[in-house]
Design a protein around this nucleic acid. Structure first.
Lengths: 125, 125
DNA sequence: ATAACTGCAAATCTTTTGCTTACAG
DNA sequence: CTGTAAGCAAAAGATTTGCAGTTAT
């Protein structure tokens, strides 16, 4: 557990939105100007591997980059508005049931699930 | 409607698995050696825009590339085994209900949904 | 001490853009 | 004809790798 990792983990934990690797790196630089982008990628790789963060694509609204968020206690769905870019989160017991169905019917042991919907949000439709 | 587009659309339509842009380009070259990779990207962009193909990430099992498949009549979920890499597809009425719930409760007009689960398949667990 | 981690530079890979030529309708 | 698409080269952006020096434990 190094200084750099502490900084990165804390930023991810306390972030309100969804950060991509470069945005995370920029925020980290505010606290530790020497921190390297490569370290960010390597740390994200680790956190992902240990299931501490979720990796999102948010329907590629902004190209091919990936976004990260601290793994929540409860999985949630991301709704990405293709017009205004707003990202909403959504929880549902149906989603929980769906996961259960997958594990049961396919004997598939889920370690990560990602649900992303693209479309028009209530404000934009 | 050009020769190149016809080739590309036909490959996507008849593909059994999930192709990334480069794999699609390679298959296209077998039929039309002069076809350019850029044309593949541009055509994929169009097909995506018109909702004729779905773009997947398959849990980034192989890095940051994207995969494409012809939009099916019925949405389905992708299950990616993190051990053997096998991709399974899964349909469910629960999934359909979940989409309905999102549209109703959030007044969100879904144009594309993507559900991907990573974990261990029945053979690997 | 020593195994793991960081920084730096450079490589790799995917995707996008500008511009000219070619082709479909 | 005329607008749209394709090809080519080059750019841009994201992520990964090799290696030498540094740090956590």
């Amino acid at each position: 557990m190094t200084r750099q990792r502490r900084v990165l983990v804390q930023i991810i934990q306390s972030a309100d939105g969804h950060l991509d690797a470069v945005a995370l790196w920029q925020r980290a630089q505010e606290r530790d100007p020497a921190i390297n982008k490569v370290t960010v990628y390597r740390t994200l790789g680790l956190l992902k591997k240990f299931g501490l963060v979720d990796e999102l694509d948010l329907m590629h609204l902004e190209g091919g980059k990936h976004y990260y968020e601290a793994k929540a206690t409860r999985d949630h769905i991301h709704l990405a508005c293709i017009k205004c870019g707003r990202i909403q989160e959504f929880e549902s017991v149906l989603f929980e049931k769906l996961k259960g169905q997958i594990e049961r019917e396919r004997q598939f042991q889920i370690s990560t699930v990602r649900v992303e919907a693209g479309g028009l949000c209530d404000r934009c439709r």
